[in-house]
């Protein structure tokens, strides 16, 4: 059996690194020995987030001021605008969504799942496991320095995120009665959206830490035991944090789209009025 000798697709050993083991890994964007479609997953994530970002920016900032498609119709309020704050000083060309959207935006931007997703898909840091990244990254300090050190305030965005979440539940429940008792598909859409956003918020890593992760001893007091039981439940939710992140992202966009299409007259809300 013949042995075939070929040159490896590698660079010489990097021996000048500081504080790192000094190996022979391939350096440079996309350089890898992986044989699978490693680019597929970050590509899908980038496309999914990109679609959401474009849609949400258009819907929250442009659709109503420029194209006069209301964000509230027949007792249904788009989740991008809840709670609805319309101060007199706000110019007509600035959407009231900007007064509230910074909270969920900050919550999701600093979220541990989204960090993984966008570091991989948009920053190529790394683009995929065991795949080379741009050499410009090599001395980048990641979450040790500004701006990414600000990721550490995730817990404060979590606290704030419960405010719009509460209003989303109120909006969803109130939509069943605010134009007279009715059971409409729009109410159901808003209710499911509020439920999925609740799942996303309660599966948060920071909440899990605050509830029980700070404790070293779960059996040392009756309060610690209560917190342990809550921590266990949140741990169960946390295992699917990525799933909650995606389904709640899709649901909030779909709920907004549903309200907009009702307002535009494209759809008619199927409802049973009592």
């Amino acid at each position: 059996m013949a042995e075939i000798h070929t040159s490896p697709d590698t660079l010489p050993a990097v021996s000048t690194r500081m504080h790192t083991p000094g190996g022979t890994a391939l350096q440079g964007l996309g350089r890898t020995s992986r044989r699978d479609f490693w680019w597929l997953q970050p590509g899908i994530v980038a496309a999914g987030f990109g679609a959401f970002i474009v849609y949400s920016l258009f819907s929250a900032l442009v659709w109503q001021p420029m194209f006069h498609v209301p964000y509230e119709v027949d007792g249904y309020l788009s989740p991008f605008f809840s709670p609805l704050i319309q101060p007199n000083w706000l110019p007509w060309w600035i959407s009231p969504a900007v007064l509230i959207l910074w909270i969920p935006l900050g919550f999701r931007t600093t979220c541990y799942y989204y960090r993984k997703a966008y570091y991989r898909s948009y920053f190529a840091d790394p683009p995929a496991c065991a795949v080379g990244e741009p050499t410009i990254h090599r001395r980048y300090a990641m979450e040790r320095a500004f701006p990414f050190i600000l990721q550490n305030i995730h817990r404060y965005f979590l606290y704030l995120a419960f405010i719009p979440l509460l209003f989303l539940w109120i909006d969803a429940l109130y939509s069943f009665v605010n134009t007279g008792p009715r059971f409409g598909l729009g109410g159901l859409v808003l209710l499911v959206n509020a439920g999925l956003l609740t799942g996303y918020s309660f599966s948060c890593h920071s909440l899990r830490h605050i509830v029980g992760g700070r404790l070293d001893c779960f059996s040392c007091s009756s309060l610690a035991r209560v917190r342990y039981r809550a921590w266990q439940r949140l741990t169960g939710l946390n295992q699917d944090h990525m799933l909650w992140a995606w389904v709640s992202l899709v649901s909030v966009a779909l709920a907004d789209l549903y309200v907009r299409l009702l307002a535009w007259g494209v759809l008619v809300d199927p409802a049973i009025r009592l």
Partner: peptide
């Protein structure tokens, strides 16, 4: 990737 691709100023 920090150990594989980066040159960190601190350990």
């Amino acid at each position: 990737h920090v150990l594989r691709n980066h040159e960190t100023r601190n350990p």
